[in-house]
Amino acid sequence: MGKVIVVTSGKGGVGKTTSTAALGAALAQNGERVVVVDFDVGLRNLDLVMGAERRVVYDLVNVIQGEAKLTQALIRDKRVETLYLLPASQTRDKENLTPEGVEKVIASLKNAFDWVICDSPAGIERGATLAMRHADVAIVVTNPEVSSVRDSDRIIGLLDSKTVKAENGEPMEKHLLLTRYDSARAERGDMLKVDDVLEILSIPLLGIIPESMDVLRASNVGAPVTLADGRSAPAMAYFEAARRLRGEILPVTIPGEKRGFFGKIFGRKAA
């Protein structure tokens, strides 16, 4: 029986899709069977970030409406053979996602995969609540910035009340993934520090992903950053986060924090 993870944030543009793709690929690169599921019906993008946009035939809504079988809609990654994508529909609207339909699809995916990673749409509406509904674990993606932190706090509240786990009185496992972190700006006092965000949101830290050109470069070519350049700073941070998801205990390092004298003088290169 696989584990269901929701990647969520409330606020848009903080890196949910990037993180879903990168973590999904990182887990699959280790040989585990992974499916990444796009819940952003009407505004799908996970296919693009994964580089599978030209291979989409059927989607999540087709499967829910009984117009296609799950196996027909799943797209196998061309680089990592244990990695699959279930795309969202680009043309239908979110009303086509029914709670019963989503429950059935998630149950089938759980049987076939080790990890089912659901990429939530932004906001707190139907798409977002359905994406989190059946999750065993939540990854809350947050930027070190006031509006993102506030929205994350709101999402944490929903995770603790609107999920199946919460309704059954079980604790919901939640992890913070701090993305677009710029340690130089944080050290200068112009960006919330890791500890500030942790203290405010008080959920355990899964990883810190540095602000980096490599993330954009990877999405430009349609590859999860862990596949595009496995030795880049953000890829290494995602690999570590994936290991923590598997239950390994690793100390979290703040990327780019220990720079030498010259690094400080000449400013920070894109990590």
């Binding site: 006031v146 506030r150 706090d153 200068r188 006092g189 112009d190 960006m191 919330l192 405010i200």
Partner: peptide, 19 residues
């Protein structure tokens, strides 16, 4: 002056009320 402490304090007040 540094702006992060202001962000931190504003968030703490705001979230206490939001919650």
């Amino acid at each position: 002056s540094q702006s992060a402490p202001a962000a931190r304090e504003r968030l703490q007040v705001l979230l206490a009320h939001d919650r």
